[in-house]
């Protein structure tokens, strides 16, 4: 579904990604783990068109490097950005409506909304509430829900556990698996919480200062001594 080949990103004179390559197969959950500043967020931003890049990003065989982000949404790509970026000045319902911005079929929108509410019932209760007043965890649910409203085939999640109460983190990761299994949505997950990320994913990449230093099935990565000492706390 997604193939990244020799992707490079520069912030001015500073190079953030030194030519990374990775692949996400249809129906999979793939994770990208690494420390702060390794380039995880940069990788997702580069794929979704928020950053100018060198290299190839093949999405269903088509090179989408440097295509504007709003066009990629139309191709079935959704990106839940770091820090959630919900529209804090809009209500929960309006945020979801904006998620379905490119959808024309009213019944399909209704159906998607019902699905979002079925996995995040909390959002249904808070439809009229201004998104900025939600808790961090609820905002994360809204950000994921908003992305689902665009009927994605490929979903990128950037640090869904960041700044969220531990009890909600567990719920959100369960929902991520559910979205993958029930809707057949392919997922690329970026996470600092490597333990959790390797638990829900099937394949993983380890990013270090702009290079991919390791890649393997998630099960194998969890046993890898290097990963264990550097990312799994022992």
């Amino acid at each position: 579904m997604l193939q990244v080949k020799n992707l490079k990103v520069n912030y001015g004179a500073i190079s953030a990604l030194h030519g990374i390559s990775l692949e996400v197969k249809q129906g999979d959950i793939v994770t990208l783990i690494g420390a702060n500043g390794a380039g995880k967020t940069t990788t997702l931003k580069a794929i979704s068109g928020l950053l100018k890049v060198d290299g190839e990003v093949l999405y269903n065989g088509r090179n989408i490097a440097n295509v504007a982000p709003h066009k990629l949404v139309g191709l079935g790509m959704a990106h839940v950005p770091e820090g959630r970026m919900v529209f804090a000045n809009l209500t929960v319902a309006e945020n979801l409506q904006m998620g379905a911005y490119l959808q024309r079929d009213k019944r399909a929108i209704e159906h998607d909304r019902a699905f979002v509410f079925s996995i995040f019932p909390r959002l249904a209760e808070r439809q009229k509430q201004i998104a900025g007043t939600l808790s961090g965890g609820e905002q994360q649910m809204l950000a994921i829900g908003r992305a689902l409203m665009s009927r994605p085939k490929f979903l990128m999640l950037d640090e869904p556990s960041l700044g969220i109460a531990p009890i909600l983190v567990k719920t959100i990761f369960e929902k991520i698996v559910e979205i993958n299994q029930k809707q057949g949505i392919t997922i690329l997950l970026v996470e600092q919480n490597a333990n959790l990320a390797l638990e829900v994913s099937r394949y993983g990449y380890v990013l270090e200062t702009g290079h991919i230093i390791l890649q393997d099935s998630s099960a194998a990565l969890r046993q890898n001594p290097k990963v264990k000492s550097a990312y799994l706390g022992g």
């Binding site: 504007a68 982000p69 709003h70 950005p81 970026m85 529209f87 809009l90 904006m98 992305a147 665009s150």
Partner: peptide, 19 residues
């Protein structure tokens, strides 16, 4: 609503498909 969304965060707006 899209105007308000873009006004709040243009990057997030582009990620939901708003031009």
């Amino acid at each position: 609503t899209a105007m308000r969304a873009v006004s709040f965060n243009p990057q997030a707006a582009s990620l939901v498909g708003i031009n």
